[in-house]
């Protein structure tokens, strides 16, 4: 797999003396669903903003699709990425769903005659076609986030960054967005970078980058990173449920493999049960 985002020795601080991001390096593979996991205050949202060039890095390199991020290449880099922020209201610019999706197209100088078709296409992709003339105050959080995604898709990025995009949503909204994003990842080979503190979501991703106090503390496949119990707990995160159960059962002497995947654990337990 080729890397699509490369971060090298990145440092940044909101204040002169304190570094919020301290010499971070990592890579994100094309087409992967990568989670950047950390407690609140670990610097994860700051990374999202740095990747999009919304904040100016102090030092280091950010390379997206082979292009190194700088003031001159800002537009080229941003064209490859879209970002969904946490607050559904504060990224909804248009007065209606239609207008909001159009906003990005306007910025990219798309021919107005073509806009309606594009808007309709992407509204359908996120199941918001019936709501095209609705105002944001009449939409749920999940619906607004779907519109944000439609607006991003209409600009044809290859990477979507989710900056805690579901943390302000109710469970239904969370499920809607997670399902949509996973589908985009599978069907369109869209690279997804999900910034979150939700361990169960991280357990279902392809790759996990563990962040704490501005440092990358660990990275790797979920099953490798998320079963380091002491490390996870020290970072104020939860251990995956399946792991808690499998570990507990092992202590009872039951021969079961340590798991973070609930489905697999259920299968294994049922096999054991039917064998006896």
């Amino acid at each position: 797999m080729e890397k699509i985002i490369e971060v090298k020795h990145l440092s940044f601080g909101y204040d002169e003396d304190i570094l919020t991001i301290d010499d971070i390096s990592f890579q994100i593979q094309k087409g992967s669903y990568t989670t950047i996991l950390g407690h609140n205050g670990s610097g994860k949202s700051t990374i999202a903003k740095l990747l999009m060039g919304l904040l100016e890095k102090k030092s280091g390199d950010i390379i997206v699709g082979g292009i190194s991020l700088s003031e001159e290449t800002l537009s080229q880099v941003r064209n490859q990425m879209g970002i969904v922020f946490q607050n559904p209201d504060n990224q909804f610019i248009g007065s209606t769903v239609r207008d909001d999706i159009a906003f990005g197209l306007e910025n990219n100088c798309v021919d107005p005659a073509l806009m309606d078709d594009i808007i309709n296409e992407y509204a359908k992709k996120v199941n918001m076609y019936e709501f095209l003339d609705h105002e944001p105050t009449k939409l749920s959080g999940g619906q607004k986030q779907r519109v944000a995604i439609a607006g991003i898709l209409a600009m044809s990025p290859s990477i979507i960054i989710l900056d805690e995009a579901t943390s302000m949503l109710d469970p239904r909204g969370k499920n809607e967005i997670n399902a949509l994003v996973h589908q985009l990842n599978k069907d369109k080979n869209m690279t997804i970078v999900s910034i979150t503190h939700d361990i169960e979501e991280a357990a279902l991703s392809d790759y996990v980058i563990l962040l704490s106090d501005g440092h990358v503390v660990d990275e790797g496949k979920p099953e490798d990173v998320l079963m380091k119990k002491d490390e996870i707990e020290r970072l104020s995160l939860d251990i995956p449920f399946a792991y808690k159960v499998s570990e507990g059962l092992q202590k009872l002497g039951i021969s079961i493999t340590n798991q973070i995947d609930r489905e697999k654990l259920v299968k294994e337990l049922c096999q054991l049960h039917s064998k006896k």
Partner: peptide, 8 residues
């Protein structure tokens, strides 16, 4: 607890 991390 909306928006808080697990520890919070």
């Amino acid at each position: 607890t909306a928006g808080l991390d697990p520890q919070g």
